[in-house]
Design a protein around this nucleic acid. Structure first.
Lengths: 206, 206
DNA sequence: CCCGGATCTGGACGAGCGTCAAGAGATTCC
DNA sequence: GGAATCTCTTGACGCTCGTCCAGATCCGGG
């Protein structure tokens, strides 16, 4: 049997345990992004890993803790997406180009991951257990957006006209609409996102 | 037994059937807004109505058709929310005030309905069966926003700087962030929404 | 080599799910 | 007032769910 799940994280082989947890969380993220929260079961997650369904309760107390851990894993992946574009751009136009390239690439390249994020963020509206982690990721994303915006303002010698939270909300709204269309099969989704961001951005920074 | 569900909609008492369907859909909307899509069962919906769970399959072919019908019911309720403000305002400021009053009222007054809408819209990212109806409602909401925006531009002698879909996406993004905070118990959510809309709007219409 | 803890399997459990159908009531029409 | 039809309840079905557990397997230290 061994110790309880919580204690297992503090033993000598804590890093090994952490690695297995991460491995299982990756399988869970894959499953969640394919099926959505409502249709994802622990057995399906296990089927997407190398182990059987019983092992999930060896590394996680219950389903909520597993999914919470997934959200934390997700966080680490996506909050630095535009940092390279910010670091290398030498003009405002170059920054916008780099930002849009990255944004449309992730829109068309990994739409399943994004719909999962929106799904989990929505679950937080119903399930208080998810709220803290979701809020934390939202803040990281907001900061990521804000780094782009402030650099853009700097390069174009202008000022952001709205605060960071509003700016994030605006760009997130545009992205979400584009994602909806992308997943519905609209081939113009990425191009329309490009166009709308390019239309909105100069209005909010000038 | 009687005829199949589809035929039942075409008989002489079609309107009576439609009324019962509507009644059940209302109970379903109540349940969905409380529990979210992932946790809502047909028995729970029936428990929120005056009937037993079996009757749901008398009026709806299956769960998907019931929820699709719910979405259509929802549509009728919310796509004219700001029309009175549009019709009565005689100045741009008055229009913005009326719009914001209505928006913050619905944010704090019926947040459960709104989180349900976002939940169902998200389900459409996973479940193709919902996409057509969701897209239709999204378009109605976009038109509703656009009526406000064009009237605002008219009253202030200005021009919208971005197209209707982008405008809707922007305001929807702001509203969604506010809703997230409202449901998390942030008492400032409504005030922050007001402020951010008032900051963004003049930037996109001038 | 073998022991003991760590790790993992696979089946069992009770509960709840969507769906269905037999029949009880209610209503309508002759 | 009885027959036919519409409406609704009840309980059952096969299934999947999260959780738990007894035991098989693995593996490092004596």
């Amino acid at each position: 049997m061994g110790p309880a799940v919580a204690d297992r994280l503090e033993g000598r082989a804590a890093d090994k345990v952490a690695r297995r947890r991460s491995e299982l969380a990756t399988a869970a993220l894959k499953t969640l992004s394919e099926l959505g929260y409502a249709r994802t079961s622990l057995r399906e997650i296990a089927a997407n890993s190398e182990y059987s369904h019983g092992v999930l309760h060896y590394y996680f107390r219950d389903k909520v803790e597993l999914i919470t851990h997934c959200v934390r894993e997700y966080k680490a992946r996506c909050a630095t997406r535009y940092d390279e574009a910010v670091a290398t751009a030498t003009t405002a136009e170059e920054l916008v180009t780099g930002f849009l390239r990255e944004q449309t690439a992730t829109l068309t390249g990994e739409p399943e991951m994004h719909r999962l994020w929106y799904d989990l963020r929505n679950q937080a509206m119903f399930e208080p257990a998810f709220r803290a982690d979701v809020a934390e990721i939202d803040q990281l994303l907001e900061q990521m957006v804000w780094r782009v915006v402030t650099r853009y303002a700097q390069l174009s010698g202008a000022e952001p006209r709205v605060a960071a939270p509003a700016f994030y909300a605006v760009l997130d709204g545009l992205f979400q609409q584009a994602l909806l269309r992308q997943l519905a099969g609209d081939p113009q989704a990425a191009a329309d996102l490009r166009a709308s961001v390019q239309a909105v951005l100069p209005q909010l920074v000038h």
